[in-house]
Design a protein around this nucleic acid. Sequence first.
DNA 1: ATGCTTGCAAACCCTTTGCAGGCAT
DNA 2: ATGCCTGCAAAGGGTTTGCAAGCAT
Lengths: 168, 168
Amino acid sequence: MGRVSSSESNVDVHRQLAAFSNYLKRKGLKITNQRLLVAEKIFSLQSHFTVDTLAEELKERRNEISRATIYRIVTVMVEAGLLTEHNFGQNARYFEYIPRQEHHDHIICNDCGRIDEFVHDGIEQIQLQIAEQHGYDLSEHSLNLYGSCQELRKKGTCSRRVVRENRV
Amino acid sequence: MGRVSSSESNVDVHRQLAAFSNYLKRKGLKITNQRLLVAEKIFSLQSHFTVDTLAEELKERRNEISRATIYRIVTVMVEAGLLTEHNFGQNARYFEYIPRQEHHDHIICNDCGRIDEFVHDGIEQIQLQIAEQHGYDLSEHSLNLYGSCQELRKKGTCSRRVVRENRV
DNA sequence: ATGCTTGCAAACCCTTTGCAGGCAT
DNA sequence: ATGCCTGCAAAGGGTTTGCAAGCAT
């Protein structure tokens, strides 16, 4: 249930990389191999990630980059407005590439950690009203729904769990 | 804009402490001085807190309790259903005492860190619909609005910031 | 040549845990 | 007396930072 038809083409990735390069140039920052590799991985991922998962994936493709550097690059990309940071749990910092300013909120599965996305115009508007009523100038918001997806209920198992008699 | 008329009376605090004691007894846990002091502080706080702020406040009142112990007590209280944990930022674990299962969401000020609360039945219902549409069994949610409150705009300063020419 | 970037390792912050002594039961 | 609790200090996990070498400009 991500974006319309996923399969980000290479053309898109290249365009996004070019945009990132332009940003770097404009800011007087250097276009390094590490920055391009990390950005490319993020653009082609098309989903949420942590610095840790990113580091693992890069390592598998023989493009190992130190976590310190990845943290620094991700920070630059957040400043560039290319990445958004999420607070899904207390001990994980998730980032997500959001093409063309497409906003959305998330539903996270308590069983398997799966993350789905949604947008609801009604909710978006109500939020603006609420902020106004409380005297706030709304700049952003974070709406996360937590629950269990169908997988565990239907199959009896999912990537993380098995249905047991005594659910905790 | 917290709960109706705040001023939690001592009577209430005592009742809540009694409830907590009962819970401890029921679970075969011990009623220790630290547990009572921490719980009392939380009940009388009537707002969001971190383990750190709690530790500081207890220290000021000459009731210093080690952070390790506070973490352990807070964990028990979450299990008892007396506390809810929030993810307002990535590097702070906030807890909140929620009397009588009163649910609410939050608006957080980016300037001063102030936290206001609200409930909107419409949003609550829409969330259930969205979860259902995506095949999820909704168990909980977290909705945080971020913005700037009136203080900084009106006074030119607030507890954390001063209005400057170049806002970042 | 210049100085931004990288990688390493150490430092940090918050949180958890092993252990021995303390206390509620 | 029993064994759960506490406090200390050490360990852990994620993130940041100082520094010297490396690389884009």
